[in-house]
Design a protein around this nucleic acid. Sequence first.
DNA 1: GCCTAGTATGTAACCGTTTTCAAGAAATTC
DNA 2: GAATTTCTTGAAAACGGTTACATACTAGGC
Lengths: 342, 342
Amino acid sequence: MERSAKQGIRAVAAEAGVSTASVSRALNNPDSVSAPLRARIARAVETVGYIPHAPARELASRRSRTLGAIVPTIDNTMFARGIASLQKYLSSVGYMLFLTTSGYDLDAELEQARNLVSRGVDGLVLRGDCHHDGLRKMLADYSVPFINVGIYRPDRPYPCVGTDNEAAAHRAALHVIELGHRRIGIVSALQRNNDRASARVAGFRRAMAEHGIKMPPQWHVEVPYTLDDAREAARYLLGLKDRPTAVVCGNDVIAYGVLLEAERSGFSVPDDLSVVGFDDLDWSRHLRPSLTTIHVPTGDTWQRAGEYLVRHLAGEQTIMHHEVDYSLIVRESTASPTRSSK
Amino acid sequence: MERSAKQGIRAVAAEAGVSTASVSRALNNPDSVSAPLRARIARAVETVGYIPHAPARELASRRSRTLGAIVPTIDNTMFARGIASLQKYLSSVGYMLFLTTSGYDLDAELEQARNLVSRGVDGLVLRGDCHHDGLRKMLADYSVPFINVGIYRPDRPYPCVGTDNEAAAHRAALHVIELGHRRIGIVSALQRNNDRASARVAGFRRAMAEHGIKMPPQWHVEVPYTLDDAREAARYLLGLKDRPTAVVCGNDVIAYGVLLEAERSGFSVPDDLSVVGFDDLDWSRHLRPSLTTIHVPTGDTWQRAGEYLVRHLAGEQTIMHHEVDYSLIVRESTASPTRSSK
DNA sequence: GCCTAGTATGTAACCGTTTTCAAGAAATTC
DNA sequence: GAATTTCTTGAAAACGGTTACATACTAGGC
């Protein structure tokens, strides 16, 4: 109530009868100020009802305690989960999250990244390894650290955390091969601008190649991330005169579609057709038959990405490439092809 | 390259040989500057590789072109969809979204709101009408506009956009009553701090009361938002000696659980048991039997919330209470109770 | 041709913090 | 007890923009 008690930190300073510098110190680094002063300032903050103005703080300190994340879409359970987990972790360490989406468009991703940098994020979490050429340069120019999440590429000079999708997919395909299948189809997600999808396809194909299995090209179908599209793909595959005895899928949603359509078309899973998914969503263990799939700890992965950046920003030394384990969960949707075909 | 070409807008100004004021004007209000100057500045921006510093801009202009949203959790398809839609819209009009979660905890929500205000958001999108007492006061103190989304309460003095959950639930219950059911159970979401869940329960009960139906208290079960919990609830209900012939559910996930468990326990849906959901998620039309449910245009709703705030912030006059239509989608999971019981 | 109104640009104060630097007080050393 | 170090605190300069105000110029109107 003295004079010049305009607002913000000066109001607090005036109320406590100290300088703004002391208030700032008391708030950001309590130990750097004497106990009585600290108490007096705390009281002043209380009576004034002071809420610090983050933009001003960012401007002065060049730190925002904010991370940005760009995902293709939130409308995908895996990303939603990852984001939820990341957000929760960041919140627990006093960080905030700026979330944007790219819709699998590399230009849009770059645009969003520029936006986030403009917004002053301290670091960026990116999905996968497949980005616009200019993206890394821009981030380097503005020295904004980033991490690629959901992939594991120790050969790259920038950090990442995730599972080795190629290896996991290889494991999934191996499972049906070991069951005795030789006639294996693939229903994958769209591979364009999606390293995860293509790594999985690569893993499937490697497993087959290693076992001398040749797959007719028409046995590989790519579909968007919806039940409807997956069902349509399944309808096509099952309608072929010469059809596979097993289908490995790029993700669980696709596998659900295949399962539903197989049932609808009168095929029995796993007797007539084995189906393998990837992701282990909730439904996988509830379905009838339950779905054999690859389990990936998505929440963990994204949290780790956050941890990496937070540590890195705190100046701590951390490992750049973190591999997250996957595991094959065998359930009811896979079996030997004995009954139906050779 | 002259002198004092430090960085930021001053670097651009130096490069173009103009004042910082002109650069600022050229960027924010192109018409207020002559064409040649505008061109020269554009070129300078290009060569310098200038990205404006949003925090500084916010500090000076007291506008952030950023909205905040607080949802209970992203790990719920409905919220994920809503957020996706809101984010997409905001992005299209040059706004950004700060996303945080409260976990259905009112104190946490207040805390997050404080955080967002501190961050300088221009407006806030809140889930529902059930908030901490101090929240509205705080937002008023800092004159941050907000809107409650997912509910319709024209009696309130603050804006909202959403469906009338009570009425929609009433409609759902009415459907099974009209089919002839008199023995109706409820499996709802947890009502604590969740106005949506309680409005739906209220709607169910009103429909029953209006038709003179008395429901034994043990026929109402509350469960968390997971398939497992819903199945457990169904197991309990179906295990009762005296059991309902129809179950109305607080949301689709719960309904899925009931459907799965009924099948598992040897009950036929809809012959032995009718099931109604709420939300109309993807799975509802794919399941066997497909689920009768209430369709709610979530994406629209959230986008509208964004539109309201953006308009409001632009000084336009807009309606405060916007009702979003719901509709009953009748599918295979409901039928008359003729066969099984009186 | 002079005055006025209008337009295009520049000058500099300000937004609300942090942080460097300096100064004074207290504690330590010899 | 003087000199040195260490601790606290305050004064004031950034941080990178926006914008009110001032100024120089242009064009009309008489």
